[in-house]
Design a protein around this nucleic acid. Structure first.
Lengths: 243, 243
DNA sequence: TATCATTAATGATATATATCATAATATATA
DNA sequence: TATATATTATGATATATATCATTAATGATA
């Protein structure tokens, strides 16, 4: 029992160590490409990298906003807890994505929470440093602004795409989303539970399961627990397009 | 017949002339407060102000993005035309609001359309000039970024607020929105049709009318065509809070 | 391994909401 | 002013979706 816990910690530290020199990562990354070697050094010195096991909370609504969070590896969900303890997932960040929404630049506290849905490595860059570079490095400012301004808008587009469709269209969306956008494969392991799928596309858990079964019976997909294979992507795309 | 058209044009020009010197407006406005007198002069020289009559289209999906649009006066809706010619309204801009979403900084073409829902005056500032000032004026850059980054995020928050509620909660939302946020009065003239309300809060036109009638019968509001008076704001807020 | 808790799976039922139909107003247009 | 068109209004009906109930399967924990 204790042995397992220790082993987990060791694994955590090993992973953390493995990525601790992130020069290559940040340097290549689109968001920081206009920083000088000197500026990158400052960010490197102050940045913190953390490993999160699947299911671990990264940030919580109400927390002070101190960092720009950047996903090195894994998958992270951004969600809001409703009054009735229900959760509403806004988006799923994939590697190389900035985690969160733009309002980290105008708010002082997080209004959404983030949790790892797969083992993840998150890079925390001091927000004040980024603001400082926005002020002092014009080329970085404009490029960073252009890159970062897509984040919130793509969440809006997705919300509309989902809410203008009904159940079958929404399930088609989520299958295509993981297949094309996240895993680039027609065969993948759904990283979230049916309940979380429901929270992501605004429907009841039972109906998520029901429509998935329907798609299976209809030979659109193959399901074995979390493992999903898309059998007829053309027809799935048609279902999505029709709503 | 012809007479009326000419009269309209005259009124348009008069209004346009009246506001042509916008030094006071832009100068006081929160978005441009960190620009120097010199920089403001450049913006003033290049900016274009246009008057739009209620119902007139301002920009359309697919149009090239050339300007940062800023609402001087009136009300403007931001919407998307769905495949089935249905329209989906994202937000309503009020005076002093930036019209549009942040992706104007990353996209080359508009993905949403804008139309005046009340007689409006829109100020078009060349986007390249703003980008130039972001590059060259650090204080402006950071402040502008902080201010502007709220726009898209507040649309997201509103979308969630609406979609997690059912019909009565949504109608309560829209009544409180116009009363508190737009007109600061419990008595106001609804600037949009019931159909547009439906497009804004994701429900059918018939049900918008039905729930409004229900609220009237329940002595929550008073309706005479577009004219609405909120009689019991406390109870309306409770309906909104409960969903 | 046994026990418990969570997740997945379906069927039956209830409910919310959309759609259809029709009429009365109001608004725009000739 | 008359006529057409769009908006508002309400009832009846259909439909989509959620909720409730139950069981099976899976995973976690002792």
């Amino acid at each position: 029992m204790i042995y397992i816990i220790i082993q987990t910690k060791v694994k955590k530290m090993e992973l953390s160590r493995k990525v601790s020199n992130c020069k290559s990562c940040i340097y290549r990354s689109w968001a920081f490409k206009n920083l000088s070697a000197e500026e990158l050094k400052i960010i490197n010195a102050k940045k913190v990298e953390k490993f999160y096991r699947k299911g671990e909370n990264i940030s919580t609504e109400g927390d002070e906003i101190l960092s720009f969070m950047y996903l090195q590896n894994g998958l992270v969900k951004l969600y809001k807890t409703e009054i009735n303890t229900k959760e509403h997932i806004l988006s799923i960040a994939k590697p190389q994505d900035f985690i969160g929404l733009l309002s980290i630049f105008s708010n002082t506290k997080h209004i959404y929470s983030t949790t790892a849905i797969e083992d993840s490595i998150v890079c925390f860059v001091d927000l004040e440093i980024i603001k400082k570079f926005i002020k002092t490095n014009g080329t970085f400012a404009i490029d960073f602004f252009e890159k970062i301004s897509t984040v919130s808008d793509s969440v809006i587009k997705t919300r509309i795409d989902i809410n203008t469709r009904q159940l079958r269209g929404r399930i088609a969306y989520i299958l295509l989303f993981f297949s094309k956008h996240i895993y680039s494969s027609i065969r993948f392991n759904l990283p979230i539970s049916r309940k979380e799928v429901a929270e992501l596309i605004d429907m009841s858990t039972e109906n998520v399961i029901r429509v998935l079964s329907e798609f299976r019976k209809d030979n659109l997909i193959q399901i074995e627990g979390k493992n999903i294979v898309i059998l007829d992507i053309k027809r799935l795309e048609k279902i999505y397009a029709l709503g």
